[in-house]
Nucleic acid binder design. Structure first.
Lengths: 358, 358
DNA sequence: TCTAATTTTTAACGCGCGTAAAATTTTTCT
DNA sequence: AGAAAAATTTTACGCGCGTTAAAAATTAGA
């Protein structure tokens, strides 16, 4: 063994250096096991006999060798990489989901890579392009939605086993996992109607996210079902700065005094956060107490929604269920070789969170 | 050319398939250029004659070939990867910085990889461990701070060219780029003192982030300089759920009526967001108008701080300057082979943002 | 204890590309 | 046009590991 080397340090003292192990060959001979077996071990530790596994792991602790991932992935038909793509990472909603998903992937022995489209089509296309050459075992993709290049996503899904989440694009990917927008809206509308005036619906005129359209439809159908007249308040603006859009739209509506009811249901929490700040600015008191002139509710249970003033009544995603099910679906997809018999859509219901704003 | 292949589709129709190019050899012969030259091109397009560059790029469009990144990175002494590590990606502050940094790296021809320690030491260690085997050209690291395993970070910085940002750890990495905490606090304290009662300082008792300690010191020294008596309000709590910590701490303080002044300076915006929500809950009117009983200010200019109620007066990071300078420092570090003569610390001053809370 | 089944070893090839040296071609400049 | 400089081609090796097939060793089972 030439593993120990004497090195003369600047201060004159001698130091024993443990040579870094250069490759699997070296590590194998050091641990007294043949390289193919070691290779087999790294592919799947349970595929070798317990006794040899112990010997390898023992050597692993002594020499802390790690196989070269580039050489590994070059020759593997499939890597252990998993791509996670979200439309906007600066949105705490996605940041939170990503955190959970990432953890699950690591626990299952995969290497997750994070990507954010930052709300731009060009970036989403670029990410998918790069992802292809990463040869990932699978991808969890939350697409931009309306802004997505459908054909780019379609062609990507043909090449890479993909599970869509958060926002659905009809027919793409092997499965979709998300929240049931109807469940969100029906609960908030029902609650608001039961406890006061029926709500009008505050949203962006041209929402980027397909969930927004589903929520509008759910609002309309729910109001019809209750025999109530729907009112939609569309606000202008594009991009992902929802708070600012909600604030400006809110100021406009409040200044015009054009609200048809004293109850506003926002399409999502980030719009609501902006709307609430507009209310505060205009001195409009929000809440369900007497002395309040407006009720505001919303959807998503954004991580910040409990710190708004007043705290926001909202319908919560089942974050854990969505994340877990998305990951598990992807694992099944990977195990079954990249295709499922039929495209599966899983929708999880919302949970109404009653706080102070409505 | 054997690029075209007839394939019999399930429905019986024939389809012409353009064969995927398998490797650089094939692409080279197809474009009429030798493989070493093509390899050279991919390493640095400007390193080949313009005419051959044109020919390659022309062929590139026809055949859309992309070199195998694993094979590339295996043999390169240095990859074009850049690691970006932040302590908590769900914090919009980091999400925003990461977004800017990511873009700069891509524009410079690098492949950034994102990692979040999610506030956990074990994860940070694991990330650095994985990062090592990615052989990155360089790493931009925002460490956890107090929770970081100093020796793990030190050993990492010895192996990989690293620039620290956001929070400094004395002597580690080749450079540090961040904001000047003294500039933040001196501006807010001076402003608050000039326009009303001097502030007390609201912060976590055991902050994870080293910036918090610097801010406390800055507050103390600033108050002393102004000949004022400092008051520190330490609140309990650990982890990264600052809003909740600020809210609970705020409720406690407000209920006890123990605030020594009518002006509260929070260590950071996320604490302030929680504190403001506590004020609202307790019916304490915040702002500088008459009728308000409390002024609240803070530091960071968190993306959400302009949507609080009232909007938050705060000292803003120069996001762009910090991001740009961190990236440029890393690029210089990479170009100079991984070491700078001396460890450089760059601090950028804050900009006071006057809003409605103080 | 002996045989069959399982696991490991030996030996060898290939993956796709970086890289180096020498030979050749092309360009540049006087 | 001719020589020097620059770029490209040819040839060839190596990187670290996946993978395979046949041989050898170990284990399990009766």
């Amino acid at each position: 063994m030439f593993l120990l080397r004497r090195v003369c340090r600047p201060d004159g003292r001698l130091r024993l250096i443990v040579n870094k192990i250069r490759n699997m060959e070296e590590f194998a001979s050091l641990s007294g096991i043949s390289r193919p077996t070691v290779s087999k071990y790294f592919n799947d530790p349970s595929s070798v006999r317990q006794s040899t596994r112990d010997r390898i792991e023992e050597a692993l602790e002594r020499y802390d060798y790690r196989p070269n991932i580039y050489a590994m992935n070059q020759n593997r038909r499939l890597t252990k990489n998993i791509g996670i793509v979200v439309p906007y990472l600066a949105d705490p909603f996605f940041a939170e989901i990503v955190r959970v998903i990432e953890r699950r992937c690591i626990d299952a022995g995969f290497s997750p890579s994070l990507f954010s489209s930052h709300g731009e089509q060009a970036l989403e296309i670029g990410i998918l392009d790069n992802l292809r050459s990463l040869k990932p075992a699978g991808v969890l993709l939350a697409p931009l939605g309306r802004l997505s290049d459908k054909s780019a996503i379609e062609s990507f899904c043909r090449d890479v086993p993909t599970v869509l989440f958060d926002s659905n694009i009809e027919g793409m990917g092997e499965a979709f996992v998300g929240s049931d927008n109807y469940s969100f809206v029906s609960q908030t509308v029902e609650y608001l109607h039961r406890t006061g005036e029926p709500p009008c619906f505050f949203e962006m005129r041209n929402p980027a996210n397909p969930n927004a359209n589903k929520r509008r439809k759910a609002y309309l159908s729910m109001m019809e079902k209750l025999g109530l007249e729907p009112h939609i308040i569309p606000v202008e603006g594009s991009g992902w700065r929802f708070e600012e859009i909600g604030r400006l739209g809110g100021l406009k509506v409040l200044e015009a005094g054009s609200l048809p009811t004293n109850t506003v249901l926002c399409s999502n929490d980030r719009l609501a956060i902006g709307f609430l700040s507009a209310c505060y600015e205009k001195g409009v008191k929000v809440g369900r107490d007497k002395g309040c002139s407006l009720r505001v509710a919303s959807h998503d249970d954004h991580p910040f929604s409990r710190f708004t003033c007043p705290s926001l009544t909202t319908a919560a995603h089942d974050y854990t269920a969505v994340s877990d099910h998305a990951v598990e679906t992807l694992f099944r997809l990977i195990e079954s070789g990249g295709t499922l018999e039929t495209r599966q859509e899983s929708l999880f219901p919302a949970r109404l969170i009653m706080r102070d704003s409505a």
